[in-house]
Simulated assay, not measured.
Amino acid sequence: MTLDGTAIDLYANIEVPDDVVQVKASGASGIGLYRTEFLFMNRREAPNEEEQFEAYKAVAEAMDGKPVTIRTLDLGADKQMNADTERTCTNPALGLRAIRLCLAEPQMFHIQLRALLRASAFGNIKILIPMLSSLTELRQTLLLIERAKQSLRVQKIGFNNEIEVGGMIEIPAAALCAEAFAKELDFLSIGTNDLIQYSLAIDRTDDSVSHLYNPLHPAILQLIEITLKAGLKLGKKVSVCGEMAGDSKLTRLLLGLGLRQFSMHPSHILSVKHQVLQSDLVKLVPTARKILSSHDSDKIEPLLQKMNL
């Protein structure tokens, strides 16, 4: 809760079910991002439906009714199952990955969706779709989710028919069309890591250009604000689940821009919570607006330092 009485949700990111122990110790409001690709990596064959179901169910039950947002498979780019399945691509970050890969491999996606839906009968699970860039992709995905639901109905297997489906905003095109996505989704989650990479055309793992990777670039802040405004207009919740959410130096800025849901590594929750408890939105918003109106990164840093005093 901020000093002015505004409630802020602090969620945790996890990679494997065992991470739930750290999530609970951190006092998180729930899990804002469960990266399911780690179930698939470093193995010859993809996990079957039962193995995935047990992993998702274990997390849902362990969280005792708190939200568990599970991202569908985000393989590709720097994350591959094994060397045998690795595809040759000049620029893998722009290739067949995340939801593109899932739509290209509908049987693999169907198995994961069935496992997720089955697990939703045992906790407060939400589905998150990564790397959406068009409404066509989204509608294809929603159709496949409905087909997975129907296959479970035929077999009389229980699931939450009202399960929420959200989309990740991590491509500039998606941020610019955030309102259109918000109309067809239950919530949005901003993946700032890829959003920065794609917006600034910078590979942060490349030492020759990584110094140019800048979360405070004016364009990044404007794309975040566009997405937050779209959610506010349509009454849809928006979270940030990239590294910006766990950077306590950016907490007050994100609060001032309108963010009310953060999701981060559990180890960062305490420092971000400390900033939230000492923040007064009435005082933060004017400075955040000044930062947003600046087109000069060099002028943003001093304003941010002032905001954090």
Score class of each variant (00 low, 15 high):
K79V: 09
T85D: 06
A98G: 14
T72N: 07
I111T: 15
E54S: 12
I111R: 14
Y56H: 06
G65S: 12
A62F: 05
T69S: 12
N48Q: 08
E105R: 14
G76Y: 03
E86N: 02
A60D: 06
I31V: 15
H110M: 15
T85Q: 09
T72V: 13
I31P: 01
A104G: 00
R71Q: 05
V59T: 09
M63P: 10
L75A: 01
N82Q: 02
G32C: 11
K57P: 07
D64W: 02
V68H: 03
K57E: 11
M63A: 07
A83K: 11
T90Q: 13
Y56T: 09
I111H: 02
A93C: 00
D74Q: 06
G65H: 11
L39N: 12
T90H: 12
N48P: 02
A98Y: 00
N91I: 12
C89S: 14
G65V: 08
A104V: 05
G65L: 11
R71M: 08
P106V: 10
L94E: 11
E49W: 11
M108C: 00
D84C: 01
F53C: 04
R114Y: 01
E49V: 08
R114V: 01
S29W: 00
Q80D: 14
T69Y: 01
Q80N: 13
T85C: 04
P67L: 08
A58Q: 12
K57Y: 06
Q80T: 12
I31S: 04
D74M: 04
I70R: 02
M63H: 09
Q52D: 07
Y34D: 07
M81W: 06
E51V: 13
K79W: 12
H110S: 15
R87H: 07
A55E: 06
D64F: 04
I31D: 02
M108Q: 14
P92C: 09
A98F: 01
K66S: 07
Q107H: 13
F40T: 05
A55G: 03
H110Y: 08
E45L: 09
R44C: 00
T90N: 13
Y34T: 07
A58M: 02
M63E: 11
Q80I: 14
E50Y: 09
K57S: 10
L103F: 11
R87E: 15
A46P: 01
Y56P: 08
G76W: 02
L113H: 03
T69F: 00
M41W: 02
D78I: 06
